[in-house]
Write a protein that binds this DNA or RNA. Structure first.
Lengths: 233, 233
DNA sequence: AATGACGTTTGGTACGACCATATACTGTTG
DNA sequence: CAACAGTATATGGTCGTACCAAACGTCATT
């Protein structure tokens, strides 16, 4: 009824991918094969492939066969990312997104404080130690900083959380990863991480949340004054 | 350099849309016009349009000109939704997503308890009253239920929050909106909402969070036993 | 067995054609 | 003059063919 046969093909290939008929990581059949399989012209097949690529069900390099991608939380974040990155061209958009991150981590540290297991605490401590060891190397410090926060996203075991973390990191990277760094600032950040860790260790969710919020708000203020100094808030 | 001229056209149109050169809500220029503008064949133009549609920058009904859509938090959620709905075919996926929602609302009620203004409280009270008034009408009750929770997402003023709420509602609807309802259950849910509201009114974040978690976990348990009774958790 | 030349497959692009429908235009009619 | 019906045109959807260049597979040579 609604005129686009490409849509139904898109849907069917999508279904095949989720159903596992098209194996993840394998290349899609050749366009000319698909056009025989679906009895459609190459135009339509290519249109379906384009749509699936944009939707994140295929990864296609220019001259190669598209690779089948099983959808997971990570690809969902990536699909959203195509739009989200356009919302981040001003401080307002960046701050809105950053607030979401802060919101998220506030619960994560609270839950860590109340429910983290011994192994979780150890992973957190390890990440903290790595962070401390990298204070004098700003590039490595950024990586260990991200890694420390990532541990918080892994404690619950919900596979969506690490994917969400990856999204935050990627989307906020234009500002955070390119921020001027100094050993002094690294050290301050390490102390903030330590305060969070210790509050978690003391099983004090309120203190942990407070330490986290202080840390993230200071970080935002630094980014704001660095990149968005002129904009009206 | 990498072989696809459709990609650069996609990017350029995307840029035109965010830059406002293509007005939101207006139809895209005709394909044959674009092919002259970009000096490309219709094949390429159509491929770009397909990609932009899948990315959420255009809304195209079958026989009409595509409508330009400025990206916002809502379209970002929608882009993610195309993938997310495939993750919700088992209780595991639904629960993972539901957990994210719970996480989100836990902070929202805490913040409401500590920082909600008089007008926020009034909107919350109005929603609660609507909810109570609809106890005997299960269909309306579901709507007022959703509306009550939505108020929580509007208090901070962050435009991303209502969009996220809309995403949760849409993605979880297959289970929640089709749950068997009764006046008894509606009443129980209303009492839960009332408890949340009162804790917020008393400026007690811990109580508000507890009331919310109790409410949402009971709701999940009911959904789980209704739709996923056989699955192993 | 490693290597390099060669033909084949395949994705990227273009052109032209046809259909069906939405839209704009036009002439008729009340 | 306005409402309407009929017609012409614009436009999206689909198809087929053709060509190019890069990737791939094959096979003979070393």
């Amino acid at each position: 009824m609604s005129g686009r046969s490409a849509d139904s093909i898109t849907l069917d290939i999508e279904r095949s991918i989720v159903a596992g008929e098209l194996e993840e990581g394998r290349p899609l059949p050749a366009e000319r094969a698909l056009m025989e399989q679906y009895g459609a012209s190459r135009t339509v097949i290519r249109e379906a492939i384009t749509a699936l690529t944009a939707k994140g069900f295929l990864k296609s390099r220019p001259r190669y066969r598209p690779i089948v991608c099983r959808p997971d939380a990570s690809s969902a974040m990536q699909a959203a990312g195509g739009v989200i990155k356009h919302l981040l061209d001003n401080s307002r958009g960046v701050h809105d997104l950053y607030q979401v991150r802060v919101l998220f981590e506030r619960v994560l540290v609270r839950d860590a404080a109340t429910g983290a297991g011994k192994d979780d605490l150890k992973r957190l401590k390890d990440a903290l130690d790595d962070n401390q060891a990298a204070i004098c190397d700003s590039e490595r410090f950024y990586a260990t900083d991200v890694a420390f926060h990532r541990v918080l996203y892994t404690i619950s075991g919900n596979p969506a959380y690490p994917a969400i973390h990856a999204g935050f990191v990627e989307w906020l990277a234009p500002q955070w990863s390119r921020m001027p760094r100094s050993e002094q600032r690294n050290h301050d950040n390490f102390l903030a991480h330590q305060a969070i860790y210790e509050a978690i260790l003391m099983r004090d969710p309120d203190a942990a949340e407070r330490a986290l919020v202080d840390h993230l708000e200071a970080s935002w203020e630094f980014v704001r004054s660095t990149f968005f100094a002129g904009e009206n808030e």
